[in-house]
Amino acid sequence: MSFGQSIIFNEIQGVSHQMKILVPIKRVIDANIKVRVKSDQSGVELNNVKMAMNPFCEIAVEAALRLREAGEAEEVIVVCAGPANGKETLRTALAMGADRAIHIESEDSPEPLAVAKLLKAVVEREKPGLVILGKQAIDGDNNQTGQMLSALLNWSLGTFISRLSVEDGAFHVTREVDGGLENLKLSGPAVVTVDLRLNEPRYASLPNIMKAKKKPMEELTAAALDVDITPRLTVLKVEAPASRSAGVRVHDAAELVDKLKNEAKVI
Protein backbone atom coordinates (compact mmCIF):
# COMPACT_ATOMS: atom_id res chain seq x y z
CA MET A 1 0.00 0.00 0.00
CA SER A 2 2.62 2.51 1.10
CA PHE A 3 4.94 1.30 -1.65
CA GLY A 4 2.32 2.00 -4.31
CA GLN A 5 1.62 5.41 -2.89
CA SER A 6 5.26 6.39 -2.96
CA ILE A 7 5.54 5.45 -6.64
CA ILE A 8 2.52 7.59 -7.50
CA PHE A 9 3.97 10.41 -5.45
CA ASN A 10 7.26 10.24 -7.34
CA GLU A 11 5.51 10.27 -10.67
CA ILE A 12 3.55 13.36 -9.76
CA GLN A 13 6.73 15.04 -8.59
CA GLY A 14 8.36 14.20 -11.88
CA VAL A 15 5.85 15.96 -14.12
CA SER A 16 4.40 18.63 -11.88
CA HIS A 17 5.30 22.26 -12.47
CA GLN A 18 5.57 24.61 -9.54
CA MET A 19 4.26 27.12 -12.02
CA LYS A 20 2.13 30.16 -11.44
CA ILE A 21 -0.33 31.24 -14.11
CA LEU A 22 -1.29 34.88 -14.41
CA VAL A 23 -4.68 35.67 -15.92
CA PRO A 24 -5.40 39.34 -16.67
CA ILE A 25 -9.13 40.03 -16.87
CA LYS A 26 -11.24 42.99 -17.93
CA ARG A 27 -14.57 44.30 -16.72
CA VAL A 28 -16.85 45.16 -19.64
CA ILE A 29 -20.50 45.87 -20.39
CA ASP A 30 -22.47 42.64 -20.19
CA ALA A 31 -22.63 40.99 -23.60
CA ASN A 32 -26.44 40.90 -23.51
CA ILE A 33 -26.90 44.62 -22.88
CA LYS A 34 -27.75 47.01 -25.69
CA VAL A 35 -24.97 49.59 -25.64
CA ARG A 36 -25.95 53.28 -25.72
CA VAL A 37 -23.80 56.28 -26.51
CA LYS A 38 -23.72 59.10 -23.95
CA SER A 39 -25.75 62.13 -25.01
CA ASP A 40 -22.59 64.31 -25.12
CA GLN A 41 -20.94 61.71 -27.41
CA SER A 42 -17.93 61.47 -25.08
CA GLY A 43 -18.21 57.71 -24.78
CA VAL A 44 -20.49 54.79 -24.04
CA GLU A 45 -22.97 55.06 -21.18
CA LEU A 46 -21.66 52.97 -18.28
CA ASN A 47 -23.83 54.32 -15.46
CA ASN A 48 -26.40 51.83 -14.19
CA VAL A 49 -25.38 49.40 -16.90
CA LYS A 50 -24.87 45.74 -16.06
CA MET A 51 -21.18 44.88 -16.20
CA ALA A 52 -19.54 41.48 -16.36
CA MET A 53 -16.23 39.77 -16.96
CA ASN A 54 -15.19 39.90 -20.61
CA PRO A 55 -16.30 36.51 -22.02
CA PHE A 56 -12.85 35.77 -23.49
CA CYS A 57 -11.32 36.45 -20.07
CA GLU A 58 -13.68 33.88 -18.54
CA ILE A 59 -12.32 31.35 -21.02
CA ALA A 60 -8.78 32.36 -19.99
CA VAL A 61 -9.60 31.84 -16.30
CA GLU A 62 -11.13 28.46 -17.09
CA ALA A 63 -8.04 27.41 -19.06
CA ALA A 64 -5.79 28.33 -16.14
CA LEU A 65 -7.98 26.47 -13.64
CA ARG A 66 -7.93 23.34 -15.79
CA LEU A 67 -4.12 23.40 -15.97
CA ARG A 68 -3.95 23.77 -12.21
CA GLU A 69 -6.44 20.95 -11.71
CA ALA A 70 -4.37 18.77 -14.05
CA GLY A 71 -1.35 19.38 -11.81
CA GLU A 72 0.48 21.52 -14.37
CA ALA A 73 0.40 24.64 -12.22
CA GLU A 74 0.20 25.37 -8.55
CA GLU A 75 -1.40 28.79 -8.44
CA VAL A 76 -3.73 30.91 -10.56
CA ILE A 77 -3.47 34.65 -10.02
CA VAL A 78 -6.01 36.98 -11.60
CA VAL A 79 -5.24 40.65 -12.21
CA CYS A 80 -7.42 43.55 -13.32
CA ALA A 81 -6.51 47.16 -14.08
CA GLY A 82 -9.13 49.87 -13.97
CA PRO A 83 -11.74 51.52 -11.71
CA ALA A 84 -12.51 50.20 -8.22
CA ASN A 85 -15.48 48.09 -9.34
CA GLY A 86 -13.04 45.82 -11.15
CA LYS A 87 -12.65 44.15 -7.76
CA GLU A 88 -16.13 42.74 -8.24
CA THR A 89 -15.02 41.09 -11.48
CA LEU A 90 -11.90 39.76 -9.77
CA ARG A 91 -14.14 38.33 -7.07
CA THR A 92 -16.06 36.49 -9.79
CA ALA A 93 -12.81 34.95 -11.02
CA LEU A 94 -11.96 33.95 -7.44
CA ALA A 95 -15.41 32.36 -7.16
CA MET A 96 -14.65 30.36 -10.31
CA GLY A 97 -11.59 29.04 -8.49
CA ALA A 98 -8.62 31.40 -8.94
CA ASP A 99 -6.36 31.49 -5.87
CA ARG A 100 -5.73 35.20 -5.42
CA ALA A 101 -6.26 38.52 -7.10
CA ILE A 102 -4.43 41.74 -7.78
CA HIS A 103 -6.27 44.95 -8.53
CA ILE A 104 -4.45 47.89 -10.06
CA GLU A 105 -6.71 50.85 -9.49
CA SER A 106 -7.00 53.72 -11.93
CA GLU A 107 -9.74 56.24 -12.61
CA ASP A 108 -10.44 55.04 -16.15
CA SER A 109 -9.77 51.80 -17.94
CA PRO A 110 -6.16 52.12 -19.21
CA GLU A 111 -5.28 51.75 -22.90
CA PRO A 112 -3.86 48.41 -24.13
CA LEU A 113 -0.22 49.54 -24.08
CA ALA A 114 -0.60 50.88 -20.54
CA VAL A 115 -2.22 47.61 -19.46
CA ALA A 116 0.61 45.64 -21.09
CA LYS A 117 3.17 47.73 -19.20
CA LEU A 118 1.31 47.21 -15.92
CA LEU A 119 1.15 43.48 -16.60
CA LYS A 120 4.86 43.39 -17.36
CA ALA A 121 5.49 44.92 -13.94
CA VAL A 122 3.21 42.35 -12.31
CA VAL A 123 4.92 39.52 -14.22
CA GLU A 124 8.30 40.70 -12.93
CA ARG A 125 6.98 40.59 -9.36
CA GLU A 126 5.07 37.32 -9.60
CA LYS A 127 7.26 35.42 -12.07
CA PRO A 128 4.51 33.28 -13.65
CA GLY A 129 5.43 30.62 -16.21
CA LEU A 130 2.39 31.40 -18.33
CA VAL A 131 0.12 34.39 -18.90
CA ILE A 132 -3.31 33.57 -20.35
CA LEU A 133 -5.42 36.43 -21.73
CA GLY A 134 -8.64 36.70 -23.70
CA LYS A 135 -7.87 37.40 -27.36
CA GLN A 136 -9.68 40.71 -27.02
CA ALA A 137 -12.23 42.49 -24.86
CA ILE A 138 -15.72 42.84 -26.29
CA ASP A 139 -15.89 46.56 -25.49
CA GLY A 140 -12.90 48.03 -27.36
CA ASP A 141 -12.21 44.97 -29.55
CA ASN A 142 -8.59 46.15 -29.59
CA ASN A 143 -6.93 42.74 -29.66
CA GLN A 144 -3.61 44.24 -28.58
CA THR A 145 -2.78 43.64 -24.92
CA GLY A 146 -1.51 40.05 -25.18
CA GLN A 147 0.67 40.77 -28.17
CA MET A 148 2.12 43.92 -26.59
CA LEU A 149 2.83 42.09 -23.34
CA SER A 150 4.71 39.33 -25.12
CA ALA A 151 6.79 41.92 -26.98
CA LEU A 152 7.57 43.84 -23.79
CA LEU A 153 8.61 40.62 -22.03
CA ASN A 154 10.23 39.09 -25.08
CA TRP A 155 8.27 35.90 -24.35
CA SER A 156 6.80 33.28 -26.71
CA LEU A 157 3.36 34.18 -27.99
CA GLY A 158 0.38 32.12 -29.14
CA THR A 159 -2.70 34.08 -30.15
CA PHE A 160 -6.33 32.96 -30.77
CA ILE A 161 -5.74 29.53 -29.32
CA SER A 162 -8.42 26.85 -29.34
CA ARG A 163 -6.33 24.14 -27.68
CA LEU A 164 -3.72 24.30 -24.94
CA SER A 165 -1.66 21.61 -23.27
CA VAL A 166 1.62 21.24 -21.46
CA GLU A 167 3.90 18.50 -22.80
CA ASP A 168 7.53 18.01 -21.87
CA GLY A 169 7.79 21.42 -20.35
CA ALA A 170 6.53 23.21 -23.46
CA PHE A 171 3.14 24.69 -24.29
CA HIS A 172 1.37 23.10 -27.22
CA VAL A 173 -1.29 25.32 -28.72
CA THR A 174 -3.62 25.23 -31.66
CA ARG A 175 -4.30 28.63 -33.24
CA GLU A 176 -7.40 29.47 -35.19
CA VAL A 177 -6.06 31.32 -38.21
CA ASP A 178 -7.75 32.34 -41.43
CA GLY A 179 -6.42 29.36 -43.37
CA GLY A 180 -7.42 26.79 -40.75
CA LEU A 181 -5.67 25.53 -37.65
CA GLU A 182 -2.03 26.06 -36.84
CA ASN A 183 -0.27 23.91 -34.24
CA LEU A 184 2.61 25.51 -32.37
CA LYS A 185 4.96 24.43 -29.65
CA LEU A 186 5.91 27.38 -27.43
CA SER A 187 8.88 27.25 -25.11
CA GLY A 188 8.05 28.79 -21.74
CA PRO A 189 7.59 31.26 -20.33
CA ALA A 190 4.83 32.23 -22.71
CA VAL A 191 1.88 34.52 -23.32
CA VAL A 192 -1.23 33.05 -24.92
CA THR A 193 -4.52 34.66 -25.93
CA VAL A 194 -7.59 32.47 -26.05
CA ASP A 195 -10.36 32.13 -28.59
CA LEU A 196 -13.98 31.18 -28.07
CA ARG A 197 -13.67 27.46 -28.71
CA LEU A 198 -10.93 26.69 -26.17
CA ASN A 199 -13.38 25.67 -23.45
CA GLU A 200 -16.70 26.39 -21.80
CA PRO A 201 -16.17 28.35 -18.60
CA ARG A 202 -17.64 26.92 -15.41
CA TYR A 203 -20.25 28.64 -13.24
CA ALA A 204 -19.39 29.77 -9.77
CA SER A 205 -21.07 27.53 -7.20
CA LEU A 206 -22.44 28.99 -3.98
CA PRO A 207 -19.75 27.40 -1.77
CA ASN A 208 -17.09 28.87 -4.07
CA ILE A 209 -18.73 32.30 -4.00
CA MET A 210 -18.53 32.09 -0.21
CA LYS A 211 -14.87 31.00 -0.30
CA ALA A 212 -14.00 33.79 -2.71
CA LYS A 213 -14.88 36.37 -0.07
CA LYS A 214 -11.95 35.16 2.00
CA LYS A 215 -9.35 34.88 -0.75
CA PRO A 216 -6.58 37.51 -0.81
CA MET A 217 -6.95 40.56 -3.02
CA GLU A 218 -3.90 42.79 -3.28
CA GLU A 219 -4.38 46.44 -4.20
CA LEU A 220 -1.75 48.17 -6.30
CA THR A 221 -1.48 51.39 -8.24
CA ALA A 222 0.26 52.27 -11.48
CA ALA A 223 2.49 54.65 -9.49
CA ALA A 224 3.57 51.87 -7.15
CA LEU A 225 4.52 49.77 -10.18
CA ASP A 226 6.28 52.79 -11.68
CA VAL A 227 4.23 52.67 -14.87
CA ASP A 228 2.98 55.73 -16.75
CA ILE A 229 -0.59 55.03 -17.84
CA THR A 230 -1.38 58.48 -19.23
CA PRO A 231 -3.62 57.95 -22.29
CA ARG A 232 -1.86 58.31 -25.63
CA LEU A 233 -5.11 58.56 -27.54
CA THR A 234 -7.78 61.26 -27.48
CA VAL A 235 -11.36 60.26 -28.19
CA LEU A 236 -12.96 62.99 -30.27
CA LYS A 237 -16.46 61.66 -30.58
CA VAL A 238 -18.37 58.41 -30.13
CA GLU A 239 -21.36 57.75 -32.36
CA ALA A 240 -23.83 54.90 -32.58
CA PRO A 241 -23.72 53.03 -35.89
CA ALA A 242 -26.31 54.20 -38.42
CA SER A 243 -29.52 52.24 -38.00
CA ARG A 244 -30.25 49.79 -40.74
CA SER A 245 -32.94 50.78 -43.18
CA ALA A 246 -35.74 48.32 -43.87
CA GLY A 247 -35.10 45.60 -46.42
CA VAL A 248 -37.02 45.10 -49.64
CA ARG A 249 -38.80 41.97 -50.74
CA VAL A 250 -37.87 40.61 -54.19
CA HIS A 251 -40.21 38.45 -56.22
CA ASP A 252 -37.76 36.10 -57.87
CA ALA A 253 -34.11 35.25 -58.26
CA ALA A 254 -33.79 37.31 -61.45
CA GLU A 255 -34.89 40.45 -59.62
CA LEU A 256 -32.46 39.67 -56.79
CA VAL A 257 -29.55 39.28 -59.17
CA ASP A 258 -30.54 42.48 -60.94
CA LYS A 259 -30.61 44.44 -57.69
CA LEU A 260 -27.32 42.98 -56.48
CA LYS A 261 -25.73 43.97 -59.80
CA ASN A 262 -27.22 47.36 -60.44
CA GLU A 263 -28.30 48.76 -57.06
CA ALA A 264 -25.94 47.21 -54.51
CA LYS A 265 -23.23 46.77 -57.13
CA VAL A 266 -21.78 43.82 -55.28
CA ILE A 267 -21.69 41.31 -58.15
Binding site: E88, T92, Y203, A204, L206
Partner: peptide
Protein backbone atom coordinates in the same frame (compact mmCIF):
# COMPACT_ATOMS: atom_id res chain seq x y z
CA UNK B 1 -21.69 42.82 -4.71
CA UNK B 2 -22.20 39.44 -3.08
CA UNK B 3 -25.93 39.42 -3.87
CA UNK B 4 -25.29 40.45 -7.47
CA UNK B 5 -22.81 37.64 -7.74
CA UNK B 6 -25.48 35.19 -6.50
CA UNK B 7 -28.00 36.55 -9.00
CA UNK B 8 -25.50 36.29 -11.85
CA UNK B 9 -24.38 32.76 -11.02
Amino acid sequence: EHQRSIDES
